[in-house]
């Protein structure tokens, strides 16, 4: 099954109650945060907590991501080293401005993989785009490394740089969102939308999640577990989509049994990409908690 990143749950790296079993909430990824949610005085403690949790806790099938401190901070190197050694799957670099930032991170990660005895290329990267320059460089960033799996919009810093604020309609983010999805699709990586910070406003969250999905984003960062089921609901296929996908798969299976080279459904030819997309949709439906095996 293809990797899903519908929901990436931020977990403050200095909160043991959340760090110890953040996988129970069922997000596709957990982002252990060593950056903005951790005060300078607690940076070392948070790094140590996440390091030891990664080594001792079975997080199951949930993808383990860490948001390290930025390249120009005194904590960056130690963060990356500790996380690579602890077995992190993805490192999310905040405030990525251009491809050079990713190159620096990649060099460090590559060296650490060797000393830590991890397979070369096993640590993947993700870039958070937080300023106007980063948005303009989106495609260059998205294509800067084979390790890179996703680029993400980080809206709070972005709107400040743009001398505006976040609105419920999100018009101030329209250009940035559009460019990020374009760049991600062109580069063949995932596009992740920004967090929605009003945890009490589930209607507003749903509105924004639907917008992100419609724009083509693969998922969204979330700051509270309560947003995860809502998000997965938005990204779930419709019953009609699921029904069609199952018919495509059934037709393909039947053609195989009967040894037919050409597969057709309702008089139309079905090729490999259509079958793959149908399989992906069935996987997504299953991940969304839909009853895939139901009889029609």
């Amino acid at each position: 099954m293809a990797t899903l990143r519908r929901s990436m749950l931020f977990v403050p790296g200095n909160n043991p109650a959340l760090v110890k079993d953040a996988q129970i909430y069922g997000s596709d990824s957990i982002i252990f945060d060593l950056e903005d949610s951790v005060a300078p005085a607690e940076k070392d403690a948070a790094r140590l907590l996440v390091w030891s949790s990664l080594r001792s806790t079975d997080y199951g099938r949930v993808e383990k991501v860490v948001r390290v401190n930025g390249i120009d901070t005194p904590w960056f190197r130690e963060d990356v080293e500790a996380m690579v050694r602890a077995g992190i799957e993805v490192i999310r670099l905040p405030k990525t401005e251009g491809p050079a930032d990713i190159a620096r991170l990649e060099e460090l990660v590559g060296a650490l993989e060797r000393t830590a005895g991890r397979p070369s290329g096993s640590v993947r990267l993700m870039a958070a785009l937080e300023g106007p320059l980063a948005i303009l460089n989106a495609y260059e960033i998205a294509t800067s490394s084979k390790r890179l799996v996703a680029i993400a919009l980080s809206a709070e810093d972005f709107v400040t740089s743009m001398r505006t604020t976040r609105s419920s309609e999100g018009v101030e983010l329209a250009e940035a969102r559009g460019r990020i999805v374009l760049a991600a699709r062109a580069a063949g990586v995932m596009a992740i939308d920004t967090v929605f910070t009003d945890v009490a406003d589930s209607e507003g969250f749903l509105r924004e999640a639907r917008l992100a999905k419609q724009l083509g984003f693969d998922g969204k960062s979330v700051i509270t577990p309560a947003q995860i089921p809502l998000l997965h609901g938005v990204f779930a296929p419709t019953k009609e989509e699921l029904r069609r996908a199952r018919r495509v798969i059934a037709a393909a299976a039947e053609a195989k049994v009967r040894g037919l080279g050409v597969i057709s459904l309702d008089g139309k030819m079905i090729d490999r990409p259509i079958i793959d997309r149908a399989q992906g949709l069935v996987d997504l439906a299953r991940a969304s908690g839909m009853r895939v095996e139901d009889k029609e």
Binding site: I24, Y25, T224, P225, A226, P229
Partner: peptide
Amino acid sequence: DPRELLIAR
């Protein structure tokens, strides 16, 4: 508490 909400759901 997110944990209590998770259990409840």
